[in-house]
Design a protein around this nucleic acid. Structure first.
Ligand SMILES: [Mn+2]
Ligand SMILES: [Mn+2]
Ligand SMILES: [Zn+2]
Ligand SMILES: [Zn+2]
Lengths: 146, 146
DNA sequence: GGAGAAATTGAAAATGACAATCAGAAAGCT
DNA sequence: AGCTTTCTGATTGTCATTTTCAATTTCTCC
């Protein structure tokens, strides 16, 4: 299994793009970052050590990561696109706390199977899906009872 | 079962809001409209008969519909919020064609059940969910083979 | 049928995330 | 090194959505 650095550099090469130190820096920070961050989150984090990297470059590079398949773009409906490192064999969906923003990942193969059945029912050729459960995390649910 | 007009007027009353003719007009157009329309769609449709109703009012009124539960807000990731009249006992999810924009509704009780199991697994108290399958509709899938 | 308080309206401007621009810098091939 | 192509980052543009605010409308209470 190819690692994410290799996937990215292969992609760079195949498209005739260039290996810049900004891209290297952003890739490292991306892989070291915890999931579900926005462009701005990563930009602010990077700025501490690399004040010369611009917001636009971070944004374009994250788009590149998504293009080559090492990142996935998430939209939890709060007006900010989020990113997460994507491991090809580890697809998952999300539980989102509407009170504190906590994000929990889940997998449920039985749901994935049923999605295929639904697609077949309507003759759709599915490329991807979005499945998010919104509500209160255990902590916020408990706090709300008070 | 209360109809949508009653739900809305009850909501208006309970919040100390006022019954304006714009709201009445927008509610009628909303209920007569086919699903999955944007604020602009409805605004343009209304403008033919009611050129004095402003975009902001249409927008605010649709938000009110969502608040009181007679509309649901949809986000298919194309940068435009869409709305649909919501019938309380007819929850459904969506298949979206990424080529032509066709939207097909589906229900799958087994998936809904499994969602509850997932929520229970993580002690989440689910309020709502978003479940969309993106891909090619039969027509676009066929066209792509050519 | 008003008077008065409170909510509403609609045109316009503000907001904010994202995308495009472009001149100077860097990469990489020969 | 020279040359061509791509990249960078500050800035500007875009566009859906939200806010503003003065004028209007609604609605309660005489
Ligand atoms: Mn995740
Ligand atoms: Mn629908
Ligand atoms: Zn929470
Ligand atoms: Zn289609």
């Amino acid at each position: 299994m190819m690692d994410q650095m290799t996937i990215f550099s292969d992609y760079i090469r195949s498209k005739g793009l260039k290996n810049t130190c900004q891209r290297k820096t952003i890739l490292e920070a991306f892989l070291a970052s915890k999931s579900h961050f926005s462009t701005e989150d990563l930009y602010l984090k990077l700025r501490k050590q690399h004040p010369n990297i611009g917001y636009a470059t971070v944004h374009r590079t994250l788009k590149l990561f998504a293009e080559c398949g090492i990142a996935s773009e998430l939209d939890f409906g709060d007006g900010q696109t989020r990113f997460e490192p994507l491991d090809i064999n580890q697809h998952h969906d999300h539980l989102v706390c509407t009170n504190c923003g906590l994000i929990v990942e889940f997998t449920e193969p039985r749901i994935e199977k049923l999605q295929e059945q639904v697609a077949a029912r309507y003759n759709f050729k599915i490329e991807r899906h979005r499945h998010e459960l919104y509500g209160l995390c255990p902590k916020c649910a408990k706090a709300q009872l008070v």
